[in-house]
C-alpha cells in the first residue's frame, strides 16, 4: 500500500504550551483515517500543521515522498495542491458566490471562463449542489456550506483530503449525506482522507482506521471493533 503522508514524532506549541506532543501517523492510499478526540485535544491543530499553516518545533512531515517539515510559505503552495482541506463550517469566502468559491483556484490560475465553468459544475455535481452555483454563501444552509467547501477542495483532484469536523452541528440526515460523499470519494477516486471528529457514530461510518487523540498524544490506533474492546478508561468513557 502506498504511503501518502507520514508524520514522525511531531511536536508543536502555542506560546509555551505544547499542543502536540510527539505524534506519529501514516496515511495510506485510498483509506479514511479518523482522528477521534475530545474538543481542545489538538485535532484541528494536527491538520493545520500538516497543511503548513503552523510551523512545527520538532519532528518530520513527509507528504507523498517529499520532506515538507521546514518549507517556506511559498514552497508550501506547491505541496498544498496535493491536499484538499475542508475547514470546520466550510470557511467559504463570503464575498464570492458559490461559483467564485469553488472555482477560486482556477480563477487565480487565469483559466478560460468556459473551462472554469465546466470544472466548477463537475465538482458541484459530485456533492449534488449544481443548482446553487449562483448563490452567495450567506444564502446556504450549514450542510450546503460544507458540501460547497468539499467541492472547492476537490478542484485540482488532490489525492489527499482533510476534513475538520465535517458533521459537527448538522442534523443526522445532512450529516449522513456528508459521510456518504467522503466515503464515495474514497471508493470512486481512491482519495486518502484524514477526518477529524469527536462524533463517534459518524467515525464508525467513515473509518478504515481510527486514531484516538488525548492531550496531544495518540492513545489508540486500530479498527473500530478494537476501539470498542479497548480497556483504557478514557476510551471506555468516550465510546460509552
Amino acid at each position: 500500500m502506498k504511503t501518502m503522508l507520514e508524520v514522525d514524532n511531531l511536536w508543536f506549541k502555542y506560546e509555551d504550551r505544547y499542543i502536540l506532543k510527539g505524534i506519529s501517523l501514516k496515511l495510506f492510499e485510498g483509506e479514511n483515517l479518523i482522528i477521534l478526540g475530545g474538543s481542545g485535544g489538538g485535532k484541528s491543530t494536527i491538520l493545520r500543521v500538516l497543511l503548513g499553516l503552523e510551523e512545527v518545533d520538532k519532528g518530520k512531515i513527509i507528504i507523498m515522498g517529499e520532506d515538507v517539515t521546514h518549507l517556506r510559505e511559498d514552497e508550501w503552495f506547491g505541496v498544498r495542491k496535493k491536499i484538499g482541506m475542508v475547514f470546520q463550517d466550510g470557511a467559504l469566502f463570503d464575498f464570492l458566490s458559490v461559483r467564485g468559491n469553488v472555482g477560486y483556484r482556477l480563477y487565480e490560475q487565469r483559466l478560460p471562463q468556459d473551462e472554469i465553468e465546466k470544472i466548477v459544475r463537475e465538482k458541484l455535481r459530485i456533492v449534488g449542489l449544481e443548482d446553487v452555483i449562483d448563490y452567495m454563501p450567506s444564502e446556504l444552509s450549514g450542510g450546503m456550506k460544507r458540501r460547497v467547501a468539499i467541492a472547492r477542495a476537490l478542484v485540482g483532484d488532490p489525492p489527499i483530503m482533510f476534513y475538520d469536523e465535517p458533521t459537527t452541528g448538522l442534523d443526522p440526515i445532512t450529516a449522513k449525506i456528508i459521510v456518504r460523499h467522503i466515503n464515495s470519494l474514497r471508493d470512486k477516486f481512491g482519495v486518502a482522507s484524514i477526518v477529524v471528529t469527536h462524533e463517534l457514530n459518524y467515525a464508525y461510518m467513515l473509518a478504515d482506521r481510527i486514531m484516538m487523540l488525548k492531550d496531544g498524544t495518540f492513545i489508540f490506533e486500530g479498527k473500530s471493533e478494537d476501539l470498542v474492546k479497548c480497556a483504557d478508561p478514557y476510551i471506555k468513557e468516550f465510546v460509552k
Binding site: 493545520r48 497543511l51 499553516l53 510559505e73 511559498d74 508550501w76 503552495f77 498544498r80 495542491k81 491536499i83 482541506m85 475547514f87 470546520q88 463550517d89 470557511a91 467559504l92 469566502f93 463570503d94 477560486y104 483556484r105 487565480e108 472547492r152
Partner: peptide
C-alpha cells in the same frame, strides 16, 4: 478580522494564494 476568525484567510492559504 472576520475573514481571520472564520478561517477564510487560512482557506486562502490552503488554496495556494497569499
Amino acid at each position: 478580522g472576520s475573514m481571520k476568525v472564520t478561517f477564510q484567510l487560512d482557506a486562502m492559504r490552503s488554496l495556494g494564494t497569499d
